[in-house]
Simulated scan of single mutants.
Amino acid sequence: MVARRAWLAAAGGVLISAAGLGGCGFRLRGTGWRFGFRTLRVQAAADSDVLQSLRAQLQAAGVVVTGTGVAAATTTPAARPLAADVILQVLQDQRERVVVGTTAAGQVRELALRRRVRFALRTPAGVELIPETELAQERELSFSETVVLGKEAEEALLFDDMRTAIVRQWLVRLAAVPLR
């Protein structure tokens, strides 16, 4: 009997907490992206990790993505969709690793890691929805030749973080395109 009362009291506390959170506007984070288009065709010189992440996020939000990079060139004409609501032109997708600091002996001490993506969004009729825009991220990395493997892993994590940030910025811009 005591265990049942304790269970009912705990369940009641959970329900009261849930009602309080619902009243304050709390909700679980989901994809939450709403776009003014259903289909998007990508025109890019090559498929990259940024494009793959963007494609995955768009598809998770219900957008049909076609024509990504090299895969678009190998797709048969019969398999290609006739029209897309919008065309995303990827003008530049670049990763840079630049030495910004050295010792007196010429050893590398600091690197700048950069990721740049330039794109434009238009309709199939040529109406420009987003003019040419550049998204850029930069991270600094101290370097030591004694821990090269650890620094390579750190560099990979920093590039992954920059990719995630750029995709998020890209999605915000695409979601701001006016609805039909």
Rank of each mutant, 00 (worst) to 15 (best):
M1S: 14
V2W: 09
V2T: 12
V2K: 12
A3H: 07
R4V: 14
A6Y: 09
A9V: 09
A10K: 01
G13E: 03
A18N: 02
G20V: 03
G20A: 07
G25E: 04
F26D: 02
F26R: 06
F26E: 09
R29C: 06
T31I: 07
G32R: 07
R34V: 13
F35I: 02
G36L: 09
R38N: 14
R41I: 00
V42L: 02
A44Q: 01
D47F: 00
S48M: 00
S48Q: 05
D49R: 06
L51D: 01
L54F: 14
R55Q: 13
R55I: 00
A56V: 03
A60V: 08
A60G: 15
A61T: 07
V63I: 12
V63H: 08
G67I: 01
G67W: 00
V70G: 02
V70T: 14
V70Q: 06
A71H: 08
A73K: 10
T74Y: 05
A78S: 13
L82R: 11
L82A: 14
L88E: 00
L88P: 01
L88S: 01
Q89Y: 07
V90L: 04
R95E: 02
R95N: 09
R97V: 11
R97G: 06
V98L: 14
V100E: 11
G106M: 08
G106I: 08
Q107L: 14
V108C: 13
V108H: 12
E110Q: 13
A112R: 12
A112M: 10
R114V: 10
R116C: 02
R116G: 01
F119Q: 00
A120Q: 11
L121A: 07
L121N: 06
R122E: 01
P124H: 00
G126F: 04
P131Y: 07
P131D: 11
T133I: 08
L135I: 04
Q137W: 05
Q137G: 11
E138I: 12
E138M: 15
R139W: 04
R139F: 05
S144E: 12
V147K: 11
V147Q: 15
L149G: 06
A153R: 11
L157W: 04
L157F: 04
F159C: 06
D161P: 02
R163C: 04
A165D: 15
V167S: 01
Q169K: 15
W170M: 14
W170K: 07
A175W: 05
V177M: 10
